[in-house]
Amino acid sequence: MKFSTSDRQRGFSLVEVTVALGICATGILLTVAMLPSILNSVGESVDRNAYARIKQSLSSQYAMMDWEILEENSRNNTSDRYYFDFDGTEVPRDSFEAAYAAQIRVGDRRTLSGDDRHNRFIRFLEIRITRDIEDDKAFEDPERYDQLTTSLGNEAKLEEQYRD
């Protein structure tokens, strides 16, 4: 089959290209605009998993510790800090895998329903977690940490006499 020279292909018009680029740009922009949300969701998922494990890990540790010391540390803001990777596994602070820093504050004694006195064997445990692992002041700004609250029973010996 033979084509005449008049059949040569013509390029896209400027309008076409402009419209196409506009649509394409809009689509890409929209897609890019969604990425942070998606990434954020992924990040939240990672955090949630990690937080759950951090909470479990720290709760188990603290159940066996002397709360009086912890309480003192909480008051003085000198509580120990713990570092975790993205999986929620505890790692040393200087580990390159360290992704979270956590600090625990022992909360108030709890009064269980029906009692007229505190039960010193169960406390609120406030676990603060931040990704600003290098900044020690991250735990002082509520905007920079997440707080998980749980109740925790103590399994260790508590020698103190009962104080209200």
Partner: peptide
């Protein structure tokens, strides 16, 4: 369990 422990301990 913690609640029970706390109850028992108290």
């Amino acid at each position: 369990v913690d609640l029970v422990i706390a109850q028992i301990r108290k």
